[in-house]
Amino acid sequence: MNDSYRSLFKKNLIAFANNNPNKEKEYTAFYPIVGKNYNLNNHLLVIGQAVNGWLSSGFKVTDDETALDAHIELSLQESQAEGEECALNWVNTNWVSSGLYRSFFWNVIYKLVKQKYSQTDENWNEVIAWSNLMKIAPQQGWNPDDEEINAQEYAAALFMEELSQLKPKNVILFTNLETWAKPIFEKAGIAYETHPSGFIQATATYGNSRIIVTQRTRMGMNHQNCIDELMKEMV
């Protein structure tokens, strides 16, 4: 992500600090992570709702700009890898120790990428990019509430910037339509088609990107059935 994205990211953090009255609560910011071979084909951008407890330390809305800048730098560093390593290798290395093997989100992505793009257990993570609709979440857990979502004034603009800079052929929002994707689409001016039933709730096209919105992921759903639905809609 380039400097214009970082500038927008900072605007979102400052707006959040100015608009959120929860002065004692700690928050964490998330910066998109791009696999080391993503740019070879721009195959897939996967998007979740929000990530709580993401960074080792949080920030408060009462922090001064210097402290907010330091938190942005920390989130940026967390999105990078050293040397030739892939920034998303942590998913593989922590698959068991962090219980990611129980995550519906990561299981479907992992199996989908292997199936559609002929990747292996070792390199599937290298061809994707990962982001979240909300870049700020409570440090101690749970998704941002309605007040905290509304305080993120630039969430839609950041989503659009990701589409513009990453140019993904496919974008999958594992978020649900009504409460998460729809407000972003409406603010961004993205027209979408709803799907009446099934795992997929809506689809859209923006530029050369095929955008797919799914139900909120949960344990117990059949992975392969969900993958089959996604494969029918992807380009």
Rank of each mutant, 00 (worst) to 15 (best):
Val171Arg: 04
Ala81Leu: 06
Asp121Phe: 09
Trp106Asn: 00
Ile136Phe: 03
Met1His: 07
Leu13Pro: 02
Cys86Leu: 05
Tyr38Phe: 08
Lys111Ile: 09
Glu178Phe: 10
Leu8Gly: 03
Asn89Lys: 15
Asn176Thr: 09
Glu78Gln: 11
Asn132Phe: 03
Lys116Pro: 00
Asn225Ile: 08
Thr205Arg: 13
Leu177Ala: 01
Asn89Asp: 13
Met160Val: 13
Glu65Leu: 13
Ile190Thr: 06
Ala191Leu: 11
Ala15Lys: 05
Ala81Asn: 06
Ala50Met: 03
Thr120Val: 14
Ala181Tyr: 03
Gly99Asn: 07
Leu8Lys: 03
Arg102Pro: 02
Thr175Tyr: 00
Ala181Pro: 01
Ile47Arg: 02
Lys114Ala: 05
Ala156Gly: 06
Lys169Ala: 14
Gln77Phe: 08
His71Ile: 01
Thr205Lys: 14
Asn20Met: 07
Lys23Ala: 12
Leu13Cys: 06
Ile109Cys: 06
Ser209Arg: 02
Thr28Pro: 01
Arg210Asn: 15
Asp64Gln: 06
Val91Ile: 15
Asp63Tyr: 08
Asn222Glu: 13
Trp142Met: 14
Glu233Phe: 06
Ala129Pro: 00
Cys86His: 02
Leu40Pro: 01
Gly141Glu: 10
Gln152Lys: 02
Asn208Glu: 15
Gln115Trp: 09
Tyr117Trp: 14
Tyr154Ala: 00
Ile33Ala: 11
Ala15Leu: 07
Lys111Glu: 12
Lys25Leu: 06
Tyr38Thr: 02
Asp69Trp: 04
Glu73Pro: 00
Thr217Gly: 14
Glu153Tyr: 06
Ile33His: 04
Pro138Gln: 04
Leu74Asp: 11
Gly99Val: 08
Gln215Phe: 06
Glu82Asn: 10
Ala155Gln: 03
Ser131Cys: 04
Gln201Met: 07
Trp106Cys: 02
Tyr101Gly: 04
Leu74Asn: 11
Leu173Lys: 02
Trp124Leu: 14
Val51Ser: 15
Leu44Tyr: 03
Asn94Ala: 11
Glu82Tyr: 09
Asn39Asp: 06
Ser4Asn: 11
Gln115Phe: 10
Lys60Asn: 12
Ala137Leu: 07
Glu24Trp: 12
Leu76Gly: 01
Arg216Asn: 14
Asp3Ile: 10
Asp146Thr: 12
Met221Ile: 15
Ala204His: 07
Gln224Asn: 12
Asn150Ser: 10
Ala17Arg: 03
Thr194Gln: 13
Ser209Cys: 05
Ala181Trp: 03
Leu68Phe: 05
Phe16Ile: 00
His43Asp: 13
Glu122Asp: 14
Tyr101Asp: 15
Tyr110Leu: 07
His223Leu: 13
Trp124Arg: 12
Lys36Cys: 08
Ile14Met: 15
Leu163Met: 14
Val108Asp: 02
Val213Leu: 05
Phe16Gln: 01
Asn52Tyr: 15
Val46Gly: 01
Arg216His: 15
Asn22Val: 11
Asn12Leu: 09
Thr175Ile: 04
Met231Thr: 10
Asn94Gln: 09
Asn19Glu: 10
Cys86Phe: 00
Ala137Asn: 02
Ala50Cys: 12
Asn170Thr: 15
Asn20Ala: 09
Gln77Arg: 12
Leu230Ile: 11
Gln80His: 10
Ala157Tyr: 01
Asn37Glu: 12
His223Glu: 13
Ser98Lys: 15
Ala129Asp: 01
Val108His: 00
Gln139Val: 04
Ile14Ser: 05
Glu161Leu: 12
Arg102Trp: 09
Thr205Pro: 07
Tyr31Gln: 05
Leu173Met: 15
Gln77Glu: 13
Ala191Thr: 11
Trp90Cys: 05
Tyr117Met: 03
His43Met: 08
